[in-house]
């Protein structure tokens, strides 16, 4: 097990290195683009451009520039915005990260619970009305843009029915769980549901397929022959094995969410997280902030994937030797 964890960590570090090199090449070595002018912002004075050139060592060899960028991002933490002059970037990212984490973790809890419940119910009632429903939800989940769904949800909860059914919904924003845990959950409820709605359907669909497969396995026949109840077979025997595939799927989706749908949902839901920060800096082309957000989010995704793989190996010993 230990050797698996070490191997997985080494590969994660290699991936992190590869991603950082790619970000570096995109931002600093795209042919035909002057990185200093881009980073300095749209109407920067020659002095500012010269300062950027010095700070990132743009007249020095590529490897030195790479090290300087990583130094600013991860060691000295002194990357500064040139659009909002002298605003350090890294503290903004660290300030925004808990919001994104709250959003993603809460949504993940909801979609796992709903997805597993839905999958089990669908497998128990296979061939009945629930099958086409699960099919439909699964298709919808890969066709609905999360940020658009967020806007629609916002419209109904904040405007259309805000005076009647949804009068208890607070106006969009974020409250730290340290100041008021209840308000934190209340503010995040609909963002959570929006994200969870997209994934719960897929999970129910996958789990149903896995459960139906598992119910045809020999060990289930043995359990039936021993006279166990159908409920016990489904929950204790079939579900246990089927959950393994859900864990590996979760690893992929959780990463994709942090690097995609969650960021977009934050923007429409008015949550001041990494996504909102990226969106605002895209509006005024504040490149250092975008670079920092991309790098930190990508690193988080790789780290989260590694953790999920280790959990997966804990659950399924076959993975450890592969």
């Amino acid at each position: 097990m230990l050797s698996f964890i070490i191997r997985r960590l080494i590969s994660a570090v290699l991936v992190l290195f590869a991603i950082s090199v790619m970000v570096f090449l995109i931002f600093f070595a795209t042919p035909g683009v002057d990185p200093a002018a881009r980073i300095a912002g749209r109407s920067a004075s020659p002095a500012v451009v010269a300062a950027v050139r010095a700070a990132f060592g743009l007249n020095r060899p590529l490897p030195v520039r790479y090290l300087l960028m990583m130094d600013h991002l991860f060691i000295k933490h002194d990357l500064t915005s040139y659009v909002n002059v002298n605003t350090p970037v890294i503290p903004q990212i660290l300030h925004a990260a808990p919001v994104t984490l709250s959003l993603v973790l809460g949504a993940a809890v909801i979609w796992i619970i709903v997805g597993v419940l839905g999958g089990v119910i669908a497998a128990a009632n296979r061939g009945k009305f629930i099958d086409p429903l699960i099919m439909f939800v699964g298709i919808a989940a890969v066709s609905v843009p999360a940020y658009w769904l967020g806007e629609v949800v916002n419209y109904f909860t904040q405007s259309k029915f805000h005076s009647s059914v949804f009068s208890w919904v607070p106006s969009s924003g974020y409250v730290s769980p340290l100041t008021n845990p209840w308000q934190w959950a209340l503010h995040l409820l609909f963002p959570w549901l929006t994200l969870a709605a997209l994934f719960a359907g897929i999970y129910a669909r996958v789990l149903r397929a896995e459960l139906v497969n598992a119910l045809n396995e020999d060990y289930v026949r043995t359990a039936r022959a021993k006279g166990l109840s159908e409920r016990r077979i489904l929950l204790r025997h079939a579900l246990r094995c089927s959950l393994i595939s859900i864990v590996s799927l979760f690893g992929l989706d959780f990463g994709a969410l942090v690097g995609g749908a969650a960021l977009l949902t934050e923007i429409v839901m008015g949550l001041p997280g990494i996504g909102q920060l990226t969106y605002n800096s895209l509006q005024n082309l504040d490149l250092p902030v975008i670079m920092g957000c991309v790098m930190y989010a990508a690193f988080f995704v790789v780290f989260a994937n590694a953790v999920v793989d280790v959990v997966y190996a804990l659950l399924d010993p076959r993975v450890r030797v592969a």
Partner: peptide, 15 residues
């Protein structure tokens, strides 16, 4: 390994 949207954002903002 690079999250799709983050990669697309980086490429787009430069290009």
């Amino acid at each position: 390994a690079f999250p799709i949207y983050l990669l697309a954002i980086s490429l787009s903002v430069i290009l």
